[in-house]
Nucleic acid binder design. Structure first.
Length: 270
DNA sequence: AAATTCTCCTGAAGGC
DNA sequence: TGCCTTCAGGAGAATT
């Protein structure tokens, strides 16, 4: 399931291959994704050169002179470069043809999207109201402290809410809270500035580690060139129900918090 | 306004 | 072997 590190890895993987290259053709085989794939993509993109590839939250943005593609991988999506000789696979829904290869959008569960915008992407409704990027200085303890005053939501929910900070999905929320010793059910207004500082530091650290590892390998994700990432080996609590806590040895618990399976150590996280 | 629930979808995994 | 049920999950939309 692609989280921010996987999206970042995907961006970096395709960027070096497609920037400066022209699109020959676009084929849409399944337009019914989370939202309908923008109609007329071929006419919009025919012979258009890729200017840049970058990421905002978990959106992959491919910029052209007259607008941008907005791609989201949902929870089972991937973007793969494949040689012309490689035939299309099941669930390859959208295909961007370049001179020597295809860029294929693959998404079995179809929670992702492929949209076109002629606006500045950051002003698109999907992105206009997002919080700061977690790996920038604007994600910091003072921000979380300020946003959390007089709120009674749980910290797990709080850091997964894109209005507060983007890109921290279920896996990284669990891991960040474990490393910070904060219980996922802890109410946000009770957390001190100092503890927020610790949480911010750990969230950045775990995301950066994951990016360096090339993204977490879980069920559906592979890197853009098809090789797997290796971060799953370093997860400390996610998916470890009943396994010993890496810090204290007591059993890892799991329960549903804000609709998501949450893994934590009841002894180490307070 | 804020918190909670619903929704889209397929494939893997488990039970029998 | 195979059918059925359950679960996973990003995040906007709908509801409370």
């Amino acid at each position: 399931m692609p989280e921010l590190p996987e999206v970042e890895t995907t961006c970096r993987g395709i960027e070096q291959h497609i920037v400066g290259k022209k699109i020959r053709q676009v084929n849409v085989y399944q337009a019914s994704l989370r939202w309908p794939v923008t109609q007329g993509l071929h006419n919009l993109l025919h012979q258009q050169k890729v200017i840049s590839v970058y990421r905002r939250a978990k959106y992959i943005l491919i910029q052209f002179l007259h607008g941008s593609l907005i791609l989201h991988l949902g929870m089972s999506g991937s973007l793969r470069l494949s040689l012309k000789a490689e035939s299309r696979k099941k669930h390859d829904h959208v295909e961007f043809e370049f001179a020597k290869f295809y860029l294929r959008f693959h998404d079995p569960r179809r929670f992702g999207c492929v949209l076109w915008t002629s606006q500045v992407p950051e002003q698109h409704p999907l992105m206009a109201h997002l919080g700061p990027e977690p790996l920038t200085d604007s994600f910091n303890a003072a921000l979380l402290y300020r946003l959390s005053r007089n709120k009674k939501s749980t910290i797990k929910h709080f850091i997964m809410d894109g209005k507060n900070v983007v890109g921290i999905g279920n896996i990284y929320a669990c891991e960040s809270l474990f490393r910070s010793g904060i219980h996922p059910l802890c109410r946000v207004h009770k957390i001190s500035l100092g503890r927020y500082g610790y949480l911010v530091k750990n969230a950045k650290r775990v995301l950066l580690e994951a990016i360096q590892q090339g993204g977490t390998t879980l069920k559906d994700f592979t890197r853009s060139d098809g090789s797997p990432g290796y971060f799953a080996l370093k997860l400390q609590v996610y998916g470890k129900k009943d396994k010993p806590c890496p810090k204290c040895g007591k059993a890892i618990l799991s329960r549903i918090i804000s609709q998501r399976n949450t893994f934590y150590c009841n002894n180490c996280q307070r």
